[in-house]
């Protein structure tokens, strides 16, 4: 349990640094979390984060990994629509690290 201080705003997080309230998310917050995670946000990183947020807004859950890889394949080229590429972008795992930067709750379960 903790909090991020971004541009004078206090953003509560859980013990693993996932935002408690996804509505507090902004690009600036994402940049901040990414920095903590040691990730330099490129356009490809943003594609993942933006897709995660779009999907979450509609379905209230992070997407199955296959849905994410397919979406990224469509946007960035088929050779990038796979898990390996996602792990290159987010070595901590698309479900955990990318969700964290996208301000989504941490996926729970056998994942």
């Amino acid at each position: 349990m903790g909090a991020l201080e971004v541009s004078g705003m206090t953003i509560p997080t859980d013990e693993d640094g996932f935002m408690e309230d996804t509505d507090q998310w902004s690009q600036e917050v994402a940049e901040f979390i990414a920095k903590v995670e040691g990730i330099d946000m490129t356009d490809a990183h943003w594609e993942v984060v933006n897709f995660l947020r779009e999907y979450y807004t509609e379905y209230k859950i992070a997407p199955m990994i296959r849905i994410l890889t397919k979406a990224i394949g469509k946007k960035l080229g088929k050779d990038k629509g796979n898990t390996k590429y996602l792990y290159q972008l987010y070595p901590g795992g698309p479900a955990k690290q990318a969700c964290k930067i996208a301000g989504l709750p941490k996926p729970t379960g056998c994942v």
Binding site: Y59, I61, K70, T108
Partner: peptide
């Protein structure tokens, strides 16, 4: 109904993708 908290809507879409 599940450990991940996947709602029915997301489940339907996910199975279609598979």
């Amino acid at each position: 109904g599940n450990n991940l908290g996947i709602p029915e809507g997301a489940l339907v879409g996910t199975l279609e993708v598979l």
